[in-house]
């Protein structure tokens, strides 16, 4: 285990290990990409996705190891198994990329996203919003007489569900971080 809590068994040179069993079903995969924290590295990753026509559902990036100057990019993408294999191989080719991990196939993992939601309203709606926030374990991080800003963490699905409930109650703005993910266990 490295300092970054990433398991051995990188998929970087995976072409041999992953024998194709291609189907046309769309799969959703969460990839953790470890990169040198240098100028332009995010542009390289995003440019790869746009140039080759791959999907990005969400993408987050931040430095995770200051001493060795490494950043971790978490990409959620969809595609057929063949496309997912290509994406991993193409990411592995980028020179400042150290490692590509497919958290979706490398064992159980946890995925979390943080969102801020502004809900404006008064009367019953305001009360109902607070009550639902409590159920979803969302925190109030700002409030005025006319509005709340809720902070919620969870899977993207949980945040979707919360936002859906807030919509009729006066949802005016949403900010989401995109997914951060780690494999479970030691």
């Amino acid at each position: 285990m490295s300092a970054l809590q990433i398991k051995k068994g990188s998929s970087k040179h995976s072409a041999y290990n992953l024998r194709p069993n291609f189907s046309d079903t769309q799969e959703r995969h969460t990839l953790a990409v470890l990169v040198d924290n240098e100028a332009g590295v995010l542009a390289r990753v995003i440019g790869l996705f746009s140039a080759r026509g791959y999907n990005i559902e969400s993408l987050t990036v931040a430095e995770v190891d200051h001493a060795s100057g490494l950043s971790r990019i978490t990409v959620v993408t969809t595609g057929t198994p063949q496309v997912i294999e290509q994406i991993k191989a193409q990411l592995g080719r980028i020179v400042p990329v150290h490692d590509v991990h497919d958290l979706t196939v490398e064992g159980p993992s946890v995925e979390r996203e943080l969102a801020l939601l502004k809900v404006a309203g008064d009367g019953d709606k305001r009360v109902e919003a607070l009550r639902l926030a409590d159920i979803f374990r969302a925190n109030v991080v700002d409030s005025t007489l006319q509005s709340f800003v809720f902070e919620i963490t969870g899977t993207p699905e949980k945040i979707d569900a919360f936002a859906d409930l807030m919509r009729p109650l006066g949802l005016v703005e949403v900010a989401r971080t995109g997914v951060a993910a780690l494999s479970r266990g030691a």
Partner: peptide, 17 residues
């Protein structure tokens, strides 16, 4: 030598990187 060449266009039975 390039893993991304494998199975990019044609599915192969014996890939050797």
């Amino acid at each position: 030598i390039d893993p991304s060449s494998i199975n990019k266009v044609i599915r192969v039975d014996i890939p050797i990187v």
